[in-house]
Amino acid sequence: MTIDFQTYFELLNLYSDYAMAVDSADWEKWPDFFVEDGTYRLQPRENFEQGLPLCLLALESRAMIKDRVYGVKETMYHDPYYQRHIVGTPRVISVEGGRDADTIHSEANYVVVRTKYDGESTVFNSGYYRDVIVRTPEGLKLQSRLCIYDTEMIPNSIIYPI
């Protein structure tokens, strides 16, 4: 199981571009990281480890991810905050389709730091991504992103994408 450096470089870019997008407050960019039937799930580690299906968010298509963007921008009253993702180097688990890969299974640790306008910066959510990434004519996209978080006791609420 190897991929060429060009593909690995694209993979690194996907992770860093995603982090930049979800930290930028430009939420409209977020759905574009997913293919049309792509899924985004944010799940507490306890449910994952007990085989319980409930997620904190289970967005089952790019359309539903867009619905979330609408909610974040237009309907959800919340304290505004900055967030900053620190994402570790992705670990490639398996690859299908040769050295330029048409499907990559990979994982990466993340920490999200939250800063409210009048407060200090605190570790808000920590966990890891379990991803399935596919090659499309527009480059690598997420077929599925499962964020499994250790921070099971959420400091009140999570509004913006992890």
Partner: peptide, 16 residues
């Protein structure tokens, strides 16, 4: 369940 809980479209507002 996306509507409810700490990130819910509806319930996140309540905690805030």
């Amino acid at each position: 369940a996306n509507l409810f809980g700490p990130a819910g479209f509806v319930s996140a507002d309540d905690g805030e």
